[in-house]
Amino acid sequence: MAKELPGYGTINVPKDREVPFGAVTPAPVCTQDLFQTSNWRMKRPVKEDEKCTRCLVCYMSCPDACWEYKEAEDEMYWIANFCKGCQICIQECPTGALTAAPELDFPDGVVRLEKPF
């Protein structure tokens, strides 16, 4: 062939934009900061601690592992960066300790953020 044909070029993904291979990350997903899923949350669960019996139903029912039991403090801890606001925990809580509060009610509410993350 007389002429050299064009090549496919190269692709250089900037280091700060690289995504883990196949998006496989340490589990549960809320233990890392890369893939946060809270930016479309409209309401968040607010806990009334006196009513909470630490039964772990919220922990069991959360599809994104956003409830954690902190043994030292004997407290249920909510992981804000990953909670999508699905409210399953609120529906499932047997003692009514959780209620849904609009994001607009909070200074750090995701609807108020200039950048989603």
């Binding site: 995504v19 998006a23 990350t25 340490p26 997903v29 890369l34 893939f35 946060q36 993350f117």
Partner: peptide, 15 residues
């Protein structure tokens, strides 16, 4: 343990 198929952000789609 690892998580497969997490939700990624729009700015992570292009990379």
């Amino acid at each position: 343990p690892v998580s497969h198929g997490p939700q990624i952000r729009p700015d992570q789609g292009a990379p």
